[in-house]
Every structure is written in structure tokens, then in C-alpha cells.
Write a protein that binds this DNA or RNA. Structure first.
Lengths: 199, 199
DNA sequence: CGGTGATGTTAGTCATCGTTAACGCCACCG
DNA sequence: CGGTGGCGTTAACGATGACTAACATCACCG
């Protein structure tokens, strides 16, 4: 059979195709959930159709795994850097807050997928992601322990998760405020909330 | 034949089958997402198998719609009651906080589904749910406006959403703290965070 | 008693989905 | 040039899922 396909020039390689697919998939997963998005949807979102995706990922779950792994690594690495660069616990906390807020405001889809879709990641990768998430939380808890000595770690962990919820609420209030106003507001609210954990 | 929608409960079981199905479905939706749960899964969770569900709901989407509608109505009704019963804005805010915290702690699955699955509700019901959610938020914004006069409503709305994120983080920190400790912690953190919205 | 309606059951149907197969371009490299 | 490999295509396949059909049970009530 004769296939008169569109003769496109694949020489254009402005950005890695993998990254392009990951971005599109993140947007779709955030909007409709992992199982609500088909391979065809993802392919369509990057201009190719369907199974072209398998040239870049071994499957749908592997795609998700790589996405979550990348997010967890970026968050944890950024936190570790910021904490070691800070002169004291006070500024370390501010740096952690600034990092999380910046990430949440600039990548709302990634944040959304990050705390919704862990359950769909197959087992080998799931553990690695969990580990990174735990390390990230412990980064916060360590700083807070220094700030609130004598406060039991479980309480600090609960407070940390609560603050994550506060900061990650960004996707739900999209458009309410411009980022220049949202950033200091979230920072102030989170800081005040964490001060209450002291008991 | 006339369709009589006022269903007289046959009282075969101690609890309505509908409610039993809704509870099981909420748990499953929260854990795996709407599209990650099959009709067979839901049936299996209540001891029946598969299509028995259609004796109680017209379909999977209708089930979700009823679930979200019920949640939104309960939240909004509770908020309206509490606000009108409160003597002043200060205690109204405390009552709103207490209500949301109690709901989030006792029904984590419902809270999870409530802010994740709106996109899967078909259109006639979606608008009603959105409207109730908006009314609920406005209940908070009205109280906060009285507490922080001169503060622009968009800022108060953003702060309210952020506090919802904080309070609804409960499902993510399950087991960190017992409810007796979690309740006052969340209340204090939320109150401190909202005080910062004053600018 | 016989009928009726509420509530189950199992066996399909039809659409969709993830994945694989088989093939076509085309850039690059010996 | 000719092959090789990266990257895309369409066509199929097998599994699964939502939903329907046809039938069973059984309490209840005239």
C-alpha cells in the first residue's frame, strides 16, 4: 500500500523529545489522572500519534516512574544544597520554603502528579521515590528540630506535611493572585504555621 | 408507568445499600483514582459482584456525582450553620476551622476524592458541585473580611485555599499523630497562617 | 396463592487501551 | 553509496471495562 505521509523534517531538535513527552504527560496526568490518560493522548499532545512513545519509554508506567523520580530528585537535591549553604537554621528554613514555593508555583502539574500518582508506579522505582520523599521531609524535620528543640519529631513531621499541603495548594487557587503576590503570602503563612508547631 | 423517586427504604439491611456502596467507592477512588477502579472492584468491596451496582446507581459517573454532591452539601451546610450560630467573627472562624478539621480527620477518603475527581463528574452535576464549593469558600472569605477589613478578597480567597490545603493534608500524614494531638495542631497552624493574610 | 418489585446473578456486547509487529524515512558514517 | 539505526507510521492483538440482557430469588400483599 502506498502511504503518502507528511514529509516532515525531523532535523529540528530544539528540545529532547523525552523531555517534551514528559512535560505533556505531566500536564495530562495532572488534569485527568494516570488512568484517565491514554498513550494516544500523550502522543497527540506532542504531535506524534500513539505508539511513537515506545521509542522513548518502555511503557506508560515507566514514563510515570521516570517523571516522579525526576521530581523527587530535584526537590531533594535542591533542599540538600540550600540547607548546607545556609548559615543558620533560620535561614535554612527560609531557603527550604523559598525552594518549595518556587517549584510549586512554576510547576503546578508536576506537584499535582507528585503527590497523587505514587500508587501507580511499579515496585522497583516506587521504593526509590519513597526514599527520596522521606529524605526530603527529614531535611525539613532536621532544620525544624534545631529551631524547636524538645519538640517530638512526629509532631514536626505532621507539621511539615501540613505545610506541604498549604504550599502545594497552588494548583487549586490558580489565577487568584499573581505570583509576585502569591510568593510572599505563602511564605509568610507557612512560616507562621510552622512557628505554631513549637507547642 | 410513573417513576416514583421517593424510595421507601425496604430496611432489609441495617444500613442502606446505597450508602454502603458510596463508602466503599470513596475508599477505592481515594486510593486508586476514579479511572483506576472498576465496577467489579466496587461491587466486590460490598460483597456483591459487578453489575449489581446498577440497581442503585445509573452508572459509575452518576455514583461519583452523588458522592461529590453529598460532600459539598454537607460542608456548605455545616459552614452556614456554624457561621450564623457564632456570636462574632472570631468564633465564627474557629467554628469553621473546627468543622473542616473534624471532617478531614474523620473522612480522609471523602476529602481526597472531593478535591481530585471533580473533573470526572458529568456536566449537569458538575456545575452544582462547583457552586456549593464556591459558596463554601465565600463563607470563609466573608468571615475573614470582617476580621481583616481592607484586605482584598482575592488575597483572602488565596489564603483560604492555602488553609484548605493545610487542613486536607491529613490523608498524607496518616498515622503521624493521634487525632487528639492532630486536631489542636492543625487548628493552631491554620489560625496563625490566616493571621498572616492581613498583610 | 399468585403476582410484583426490589435485588441479585451470569453471560454477553462493544469500545477502548496498552502493547507489539511490520514497515517507511532519512541522517549519518564507513 | 550502501548500510545502519533513530524515529516515525498504521494495523493488529489480547485484556479489560462499562454497561445491558436475561434470568433467579424472595419478601410482601392483594
Amino acid at each position: 500500500m502506498r502511504v503518502v505521509t507528511t514529509a516532515r523534517t525531523p532535523t529540528r531538535e530544539r528540545r529532547s523529545r523525552r523531555a517534551e513527552i514528559l512535560d505533556a504527560a505531566a500536564e495530562l496526568f495532572a488534569a485527568r489522572g494516570f488512568h484517565g490518560v491514554s498513550i494516544e493522548d500523550i502522543g497527540g499532545a506532542v504531535g506524534t500519534s500513539g505508539p511513537a512513545l515506545y521509542r522513548h519509554f518502555s511503557g506508560k508506567e515507566a514514563l510515570l516512574a521516570e517523571m516522579l523520580l525526576d521530581i523527587s530528585e530535584r526537590l531533594h537535591a535542591s533542599a540538600a544544597e540550600r540547607v548546607t549553604a545556609a548559615p543558620d537554621a533560620e535561614s535554612a528554613l527560609d531557603a527550604l520554603l523559598a525552594g518549595q514555593i518556587e517549584f510549586a508555583l512554576s510547576h503546578p502539574a508536576l506537584i499535582t502528579v507528585h503527590d497523587r500518582e505514587l500508587g501507580n508506579v511499579p515496585e522497583p522505582a516506587r521504593r526509590r521515590i519513597r526514599r527520596l520523599q522521606r529524605l526530603y521531609v527529614e531535611e525539613w524535620v532536621t532544620v525544624l528540630s534545631e529551631l524547636h528543640p524538645g519538640c517530638p519529631p512526629p509532631r514536626l513531621r505532621a507539621a511539615t506535611h501540613a505545610v506541604f499541603g498549604l504550599l502545594n495548594s497552588t494548583p487549586h487557587s490558580a489565577g487568584e493572585l499573581p505570583p509576585e503576590a502569591m510568593t510572599p503570602l505563602l511564605h509568610a503563612m507557612a512560616r507562621a504555621a510552622l512557628a505554631e508547631a513549637r507547642r
